[in-house]
């Protein structure tokens, strides 16, 4: 009995996940962000695709609800791009789950994603993915503080030198 054979009941799991995602609409509606059933199903499929793509398996509800609820109050998204935005976030999440070698919990990783997205990235998913989270993952792998940024350190050092000269 191989491991793959045991994951046969995908349909049931997906159906349950879609209904859980749709339940989040009750909260995100306050921020004018709502997913249709079709979009929710697409999101769940994206999760399955991402998991397969990065070589992971997930049990239970998964992280979609956590991502939706955490990013609900971000000022940089609108209903127009909402579904597309969530799909990208889910993909980014699983990719960096691997890149951080599972050393970071789900809540921490989503927390940092939100912090960088709202902060230094100012709503840019590309900057979040290719700059901030790459740097953060590298820091985690090296055992440094996730926020450590040698670029900022050198800028601070230069500023301090300028102050000394003045």
């Amino acid at each position: 009995m191989s491991f793959e054979l045991m994951l046969f009941d995908n349909y049931m799991i997906e159906k349950q996940a879609v209904s859980e995602v749709l339940l989040c609409n009750n909260i995100t509606a306050d921020y004018s962000l709502v997913l249709s059933e079709e979009q929710a199903l697409e999101l769940v499929e994206t999760r399955s695709y991402s998991l397969k793509n990065v070589g992971r398996v997930e049990f239970g509800g998964g992280i979609i609800e956590k991502v939706i609820l955490t990013f609900a109050d971000t000022p940089y998204i609108s209903q127009y791009h909402y579904a597309e935005f969530l799909n990208e976030l889910v993909e980014i999440f699983y990719y960096f789950k691997n890149e951080t070698l599972d050393l970071m919990s789900d809540d921490d990783l989503i927390g940092y994603m939100k912090k960088y997205f709202d902060g230094v990235c100012q709503g840019s998913l590309d900057q979040l993915k290719f700059r901030e989270l790459e740097r953060m993952a590298k820091n985690v792998r090296l055992g440094l503080d996730p926020d450590y940024n040698d670029l900022y350190d050198s800028e601070k050092l230069m500023e301090a030198e300028d102050d000394d000269e003045q």
């Binding site: 992971r56 398996v57 998964g62 919990s105 789900d106």
Partner: peptide, 11 residues
């Protein structure tokens, strides 16, 4: 702390 694990760990 994590809802997902790498396939080889699950295996």
């Amino acid at each position: 702390k994590s809802s997902s694990v790498r396939v080889e760990i699950a295996q």
